[in-house]
């Protein structure tokens, strides 16, 4: 069509940003993972598979031929995936009633509730995380209240546990679940709910057979928005989890910092990318399947 040829030019600024800020660094990270570490950090331009080897395995210090699984790494991988899955689940369970509440308010008050949901974004993540620490540390607010009320005699250890990390991540990522769920619910035809009740469905059946299928796209979007940043979370596990509940993000940061092993950090980062993309494809296949099979 006439004038169609130049319209792609409108995309060029965005393409340039993407190229410089996403594809370029990604390429550098990919290349670094196949190089050797420099003594003071950085890389030596020497091809090596050592970094990728060390992602999964470790050599005995005294007998380099003795190879075993790198359990510490595997534990971090597993913890990252497991905590992220739990975070996603918690956000979904807490986010659904919240989004439902907002979507069923009168139209003019919904904006106020949505506004309230976004307020936490106004404050720096680090400060909010320290605030949680203040709440849950041994002589923090929660323990103080519990001890004052006589429910417990000695403080409950919450800091530096997986619970602390989970709490922090669920708090930070909850809005990312609420907003897409709300968007899906707002589009929902509420007469479908009435039709469900009219056709003898119980509350649970209306939820399961009528509402959930309608808001499924919101759940998919919300889960992706929560799971991806959760698996790479750095600040929350660092502040609330400490060294014992290290996650993938902290492990990668360690290699670029004190560890002085940039190629290993790069290889771990690439691995995370592969895990996330893989999980995404798997998730969309499994969750999206029902629809396509029916439509087919």
């Amino acid at each position: 069509m006439h004038g169609h040829g130049w319209k792609w030019l409108l995309c060029t600024p965005a393409l340039i940003v993407l190229l410089l800020a996403a594809s370029g660094p990604l390429l550098i990270v990919a290349v670094y993972s196949f190089l050797s570490p420099g003594n003071m950090g950085g890389v030596v331009w020497e091809f090596s598979l050592e970094a990728w080897f060390r992602v999964f395995f470790r050599r005995d210090i005294f007998e380099p031929d003795l190879v075993e699984w790198n359990r510490a790494h595997l534990q971090v991988f597993w913890r990252s995936i497991w905590l992220s899955l739990q975070t996603t689940f918690i956000c979904a369970v807490l986010g659904f009633p919240t989004a439902w509440f907002i979507a069923t308010r009168p139209r003019h008050t919904r904006t106020i509730w949505l506004f309230l949901i976004t307020i936490p974004f106004w404050t720096n993540l680090l400060i909010r995380t320290f605030a949680i620490q203040e709440m849950i540390r041994n002589n923090g607010t929660v323990n103080a209240v519990l001890m004052w009320s006589g429910l417990i005699d000695s403080p409950i250890q919450m800091m530096f546990t997986e619970f602390a990390v989970l709490l922090g991540m669920a708090y930070v990522f909850l809005p990312l679940m609420v907003l897409p769920l709300y968007a899906a619910m707002e589009k929902m035809d509420f007469s479908l709910v009435e039709a469900g009740y009219d056709l003898y469905a119980s509350r649970l059946n209306v939820l399961w057979h009528v509402i959930l299928p309608q808001v499924k796209p919101g759940f998919i979007a919300g889960s992706i928005l929560v799971f991806i940043p959760a698996i790479g979370a750095y600040v929350t596990p660092r502040v609330l989890g400490g060294g014992r509940t290290m996650m993938l993000g902290n492990l990668i940061a360690l290699q670029f910092g004190q560890g002085r092993n940039w190629p290993l950090g790069a290889a771990l980062a690439m691995l995370m990318l592969v895990v996330v993309v893989g999980a995404l494809i798997f998730y969309l296949r499994v969750v999206g399947r029902n629809d396509e099979a029916r439509r087919g």
Partner: peptide
């Protein structure tokens, strides 16, 4: 859900899925 009555809605309200 407890009445022996069914409704045909103005918007039909058919379950799209």
């Amino acid at each position: 859900s407890k009445r022996p009555v069914n409704t045909v809605f103005q918007s039909y309200a058919l379950f799209p899925h």
